[in-house]
Design a protein around this nucleic acid. Structure first.
Lengths: 336, 336
DNA sequence: CTGAAAGCGCTTACAG
DNA sequence: CTGAAAGCGCTTACAG
C-alpha cells in the first residue's frame, strides 16, 4: 500500500535504479532480457514514476498553467469554449492543465511560475494593457496569449482578426443593399478594462460603412439580464429605419430571439441579422443567424501548439509572432 | 536569471538552509534578528520555494485534481457552474486545481493519483455505476464526489436531493389545483450511462403525482438543437389538456421561451412552468420560471471542504458521508 | 550493455 | 535559538 518507487522495481528486477529509469525512458539500449524483467516488475508492483521527483530531476513539470478570468461583464459560456479545446490539445501533447481562476491574475501567474509548478502558461482573454504581461515577461517560462494586447513584443499571440471580421460583415450587408445598419457592441466599460476587440471591430465597421456610404448606428450593449433585453429593445426602437443589425455581443445575441419574438419581428423578412459567435455557441443558444465564426477551438489549440513548441526548446528558436485568425462568415440565411 | 534556491537565501542571510526553511514555515522559533535578515534576503533575491521539491519532501502537492467530463448528452454550461466555485474554494484553502477533461476518466484518474500529482480529487457528474470509483477506491488519495453513485461505501458524496425536489414541485402544483402535468426529463439514454438523477427525480414525481391522484405525463427530452425544440413541440402537442409542465432538462428549458413564444403560449396564463436549474443558469438564459434551485456552487464548495478536511488528515477521522442538499423552490411567478 | 553516485531543492528529525 | 545531515524519488553524466 505504500508508494512503489523505482528502487522497488530495480530490486524486483535485479538491476540498478538507473537501468530501470533508462528502460522506462528508452534513452539507452537495454537487452531484451532485462527489459522484459523490468517490464514485468513494473506491472507486478504497479509502478508509476512520482511526478514531483521527476520534475525536480528534469526541471520539467509537464504541466501548463491556464489563466482564465471570469469577468463580471463577460458571458461565462463564451470563455468556457476556449478551456476545453486547450485542455484536450495539452493532453494530446502530454501536458496536464493547472487551471487558475483567481481574481488577481498577476499574483496567480507570479505564484505558479515562481514556484515552478508549470512549464509554460496560456493567458486567456488578454486585455489591451494586461497587468499579467509584466509578470509573464519576467517569468522563466514561456507563454501564449489568446487576445491581443497593445504591446506584443516577444509574445506569441492568437486572436481573431476583428477588423477583417467587421469589414466582412459590412461588405456582406452592403452587397445585399442595406443602407442603414445597427451595430451592437459589448458593454462600453469593457473597453475601459482593456477589451480591445470592442473597438477593433467597431472602428473597422464604422470605417467600412463610411467607405460604402452606409449609415451605421453603433451602440453598446449590456452583459447581464434583464438589462440585456431592455437595452436591445431600446436600441431597436432608436433606429426604426434600420434594415439590418450586427451583434458583436454574446449576451445580447443570446437574448435576441426572444426580444425579436416579443416585437413580432421576422428574420430576415423584417430585419437582417448578423452575429459574431462560434458555431458551438450558436448551437447552445439555438441561434439561427448568419455569423462570423470566432473559432475558439482553433484559437485555443493554436496557442497550445505554439506553447508546446516553445517549451520543448529544441531545434531552431522561433521568433514570437502575432497570429490573426482569418474570419469566415457562416451564412445561415438570416440576411436578405 | 537562474533559479533562486533556499541555499542562496541561506548564504545571503548568513544562516543555514534549515533555518531559512523554519523561518518560512514558522515551525520553530527564530530570533527576531535572523528572521529579519532572512526576510530581507528572500525579498532581495525574490525567492519562492520550488513546488516540486517541497512536494517531494513533504509528500504534499497542495493540488486537487478535478475530473470533469463533458458528455455529448449534457449541456456544457451546466457543468461549468460547478468548476468555478470549486476552483475558488480550493484556492481559499491553499490548493491549486489540476483540471482533467479526458474522455477516459478512469485512466486520467489513475494517472494523476499514481504519479502523486494531487493530494486529492473531486469527481464531477458521478454516474450510478461510475468506472472512476474503482480507481478512486484503490488510490492513495481521498476523493469527494458530486453526484450520487449506487455504491457510496467509504465515499464523501454531495448531491441535490432529487426525490425531495420532485415531491416539492408536485406538491406545489397540486396545491395550485393542477390535475394534469407534463414532466420533461433528460434524454432517456442518460439513464443508460448512469445519470441516476433522471429517474431519482422522475420516479419520485410519478409516485407523488399518483399519491395526489394527478395525471403526470412523463417524457424524455433531447440534448442538442434542433432536436430539443422539435421534441418540446411534440411533447406539448401530445398533452393538450395539461395545465403545467415540469422541466428537468437544461437544454430543453433553455429552449422553452422561444418554443412557447412560437406557439403563442403565455406563462402562467395558458401554462404553468416549473424548472430545475440554478439561479445563475436562469440568468444566463433569461429564464423567468419558478424553479428548484440546484445550487451548484454550494455543492461544489461542500465537496472541496470535505476533501480538504480529509487531506489534512489531522484530528479525529471523520466517517465518510452522503450529503443531500435540501431543495428550495424559487417562486418566479410562472405557476398559477 | 549496465551500475554507482551525484544532484535536483526542499523539509525535518537529530544534536547541540 | 541554530546547524549538519539524511532523505524524499527521480534522472543523467561518468565509468566500466
Amino acid at each position: 500500500m505504500g508508494v512503489v518507487t523505482i528502487g522497488d522495481v530495480a530490486r524486483a528486477a535485479g538491476v540498478s535504479r538507473s537501468t530501470v529509469s533508462y528502460a522506462l525512458s528508452g534513452k539507452r539500449t537495454i537487452s531484451a532480457e532485462t527489459r522484459d524483467r523490468i517490464a514485468k516488475a513494473v506491472t507486478d508492483l504497479g509502478f508509476t514514476p512520482n511526478a514531483g521527483a521527476r520534475a525536480l530531476a528534469t526541471s520539467q513539470t509537464m504541466v501548463i498553467g491556464l489563466l482564465v478570468q471570469f469577468l463580471r461583464d463577460e458571458f461565462p459560456p463564451a470563455m468556457m469554449q476556449y478551456v476545453l479545446p486547450i485542455s484536450d490539445a495539452a493532453r494530446e501533447a502530454g501536458y496536464d492543465i493547472l487551471m487558475v481562476t483567481e481574481e488577481d491574475g498577476p499574483r496567480a501567474l507570479q505564484r505558479i511560475t515562481d514556484s515552478d509548478m508549470v512549464d509554460g502558461v496560456i493567458l486567456l482573454n488578454v486585455g489591451h494593457e494586461d497587468p499579467r504581461l509584466e509578470v509573464l515577461r519576467a517569468a522563466r517560462q514561456p507563454g501564449a496569449l489568446v487576445g491581443l494586447p497593445r504591446d506584443t513584443e516577444g509574445l506569441d499571440v492568437f486572436d481573431l482578426d476583428f477588423a477583417a471580421s467587421a469589414r466582412m460583415v459590412i461588405d456582406h450587408l452592403h452587397e445585399l443593399g442595406h443602407r442603414e445598419v445597427i451595430l451592437v457592441s459589448p458593454p462600453v466599460h469593457v473597453i475601459a478594462r482593456g477589451g480591445a476587440y470592442v473597438w477593433r471591430f467597431r472602428d473597422a465597421a464604422l470605417e467600412r460603412a463610411g467607405h460604402w456610404g452606409m449609415v451605421l448606428r453603433a451602440a453598446y450593449g449590456e452583459a447581464q439580464q434583464p438589462a440585456v433585453s431592455d437595452r436591445l429593445h431600446a436600441i431597436l426602437d432608436e433606429s426604426p429605419a434600420a434594415t439590418a443589425v450586427v451583434i458583436h455581443n454574446d449576451a445580447m445575441i443570446a437574448a435576441l430571439p426572444s426580444v425579436l419574438a416579443a416585437r413580432g419581428v421576422q428574420v430576415p423578412r423584417d430585419l437582417s441579422v448578423v452575429g459574431v459567435y462560434s458555431e458551438e455557441f450558436g448551437r447552445l443558444f439555438s441561434l439561427p443567424y448568419t455569423a462570423v465564426e470566432t473559432s475558439p477551438d482553433a484559437l485555443g489549440r493554436s496557442a497550445v501548439q505554439a506553447l508546446v513548441r516553445r517549451m520543448a526548446r529544441s531545434g531552431e528558436p522561433v521568433a514570437p509572432a502575432v497570429t490573426f485568425l482569418a474570419p469566415t462568415l457562416t451564412d445561415r440565411g438570416s440576411t436578405a
